[in-house]
């Protein structure tokens, strides 16, 4: 088991965002987390790499409690892709993919660039390696962000609504890249609103509502035979739209 979340709770002041979350991810799994906005999906993801401090509970990463791992080491082993890309604006495309390798993993510049180019090729952005990130489209930015995360050779990749800020036209190219990454056997947790994508790519789907996990089932079962009433309602609305 690569990731195990036990009794995770998170409050923001008085509001309880996560109420007792339990869930595991096996190596090589691709788990999609769905649910309406404000259900705590992103917060849960951000707790895993400690962008949010859990209020209580434990997160076990590769048999180690994340509290016992140096936070920077932990984060370098977990790839994170954000909704708003967050590429470093003061660097070009390849520098975005090498800065973490050089400063955190202490790789030399030549090796880092080699790895970065390989990952950029994988996401179809190799030709843009020396371009300014501000000149890219949203879809291109997100693909670079994925390459940046992959360049660190993470053990798991977290995607926080990777296509929510994109033009409908660009959603496809990003989803294809994510699918491709999954096919290499990368362990992934994806928070998404793209139902068809979740169905195509994931091995398991987790449905969250109001800070709790209501359903956690294999993908086919989740979409064809959901158990929870709230899940059924949610799916009906999505399929009708």
């Amino acid at each position: 088991m690569i990731l195990s979340i036990r009794n995770l709770k998170k409050d923001f002041g008085k509001s309880e965002v996560l109420k007792d979350i339990n869930f595991d991810v096996q190596k090589g799994e691709c788990v999609c987390v769905i649910g309406s906005s404000g259900s705590g999906k992103s917060t849960m993801l951000r707790c895993v790499n400690l962008l949010e401090q859990p209020t209580s509970g434990d997160i076990i990463f590769n048999d180690q409690n994340i509290r016992d791992i140096n936070v920077n080491t932990l984060r370098s082993r977990i790839g994170m892709v954000f909704q708003s890309f967050n590429l470093f604006n003061n660097m070009n495309v390849i520098q975005n993919c090498t800065v973490g390798q050089i400063k955190v993993l202490k790789r030399n510049k030549k090796d880092a660039e080699e790895i970065a180019l390989k990952e950029l090729e994988r996401v179809g952005m190799k030709d843009f390696a020396y371009k300014d990130v501000r000149s890219l489209s949203g879809g291109q930015k997100q693909r670079v962000a994925i390459a940046r995360a992959l360049s660190m050779n993470p053990e798991i990749m977290l995607f926080d609504e990777p296509t929510s800020a994109l033009d409908p036209e660009m959603v496809g190219e990003v989803l294809n890249v994510i699918k491709q990454v999954k096919d290499t056997g990368m362990t992934m947790v994806i928070v998404t609103h793209e139902m068809q994508f979740a169905r195509d790519v994931s091995t398991r789907v987790v449905f969250m509502n109001d800070g709790v996990i209501l359903e956690d089932s294999p993908t086919e079962e989740f979409f064809t035979n959901p158990k929870n009433e709230r899940t059924k309602e949610f799916l009906k609305r999505y399929i009708n739209s």
């Binding site: 932990l74 994170m80 967050n86 973490g100 400063k103």
Partner: peptide, 20 residues
């Protein structure tokens, strides 16, 4: 988001400020 992205690749607080 720039800060969060830098911290997420594992840069420390000082590195994040210095490089990003």
């Amino acid at each position: 988001g720039q800060y969060e992205a830098a911290r997420s690749v594992g840069m420390g607080s000082f590195q994040t400020m210095l490089f990003v």
